[in-house]
């Protein structure tokens, strides 16, 4: 299994994400520039947090036009696994790979705290190593993490069981306490909390490791099915 960690101008969690998936979880992985136009040879694409293109216009609004995004859309359309974290989540919503949008936290504050979450769907490629309804704690660090979707979209998301992580104590005003959700097909997930910042006891916890272990298990399963 080989993972690509995308790097946009202004990404600042790319090295942490590479460390988590490669050095801690043990997958083959490398950084891929947003200027690249190919994702050939990768089984998983990780879109990191940060402030891509300075968050100019809106978070993720400029990143969606980066050269790599055409390859990313094709990769996702063909069933490839894509995980967007924080700014990566914002980029995926802007690019239309995930429903809804992220707006300013209702408090208007940038919140940087460990946040209790619940894994509300463990039957996904991103959460299969967690128990259903497992309580976990992951750090959040964002000013614009307030998940919004119109009423029809929200109903559809819930009916399809697309929500994977919910906040136990909603910090930012997200509708339905949504902290992370997948697309309808289940191969693209966006989440505001940072699993890559919770993969070693030294960092304060290892609750995020399950996300990467789940993806490694899922890609092995996919390769097995393909063979």
């Amino acid at each position: 299994m080989k993972a690509a960690v995308l790097t946009f101008p202004g990404s600042n969690c790319d090295d942490d994400l590479l460390w988590a998936v490669k050095d801690i979880a043990g997958a083959d992985a490398e950084l891929v520039s947003a200027k690249s136009e190919s994702l050939e040879g990768f089984d998983l694409v990780l879109v990191p947090g940060g402030f891509s293109y300075g968050d100019y216009l809106r978070s993720g609004a400029i990143a969606k036009f980066a050269p790599i995004m055409t390859a990313l859309k094709n990769f996702a359309d063909n069933g490839g696994y894509v995980l967007g974290i924080c700014n990566g989540f914002q980029i995926l919503t802007e690019a239309g790979l995930l429903p809804g949008a992220l707006q300013w936290n209702t408090s208007l504050e940038f919140i940087c705290e460990p946040e209790p979450l619940k894994v509300v769907n463990n039957r996904t490629a991103f959460s299969n190593q967690y128990a259903q309804n497992q309580a976990i704690t992951l750090p959040i660090a964002h000013g614009e993490g307030n998940y919004y979707a119109d009423a029809d979209t929200l109903s559809e998301i819930e009916a399809n069981n697309q929500v994977v992580f919910r906040y136990a104590d909603n910090p930012n005003g997200s509708l339905n306490d949504i902290a992370g959700l997948t697309n309808k097909a289940g191969n693209v997930l966006g989440m505001m909390p940072h699993p890559e910042r919770a993969v070693e006891a030294l960092l304060g916890g290892t609750d995020g490791l399950g996300v990467f272990q789940s993806l490694i298990a899922a890609t092995k399963g996919a390769a097995h099915a393909a063979n």
Binding site: Q103, W104, N105, T106, S107, L108, N146, Y148, D150, A151, G173
Partner: peptide, 13 residues
């Protein structure tokens, strides 16, 4: 502008 259905916390402040 935000759609009317979206609460804008900056405008509220």
């Amino acid at each position: 502008n935000y759609k009317p259905s979206v609460l804008d916390p900056k405008a509220e402040v």
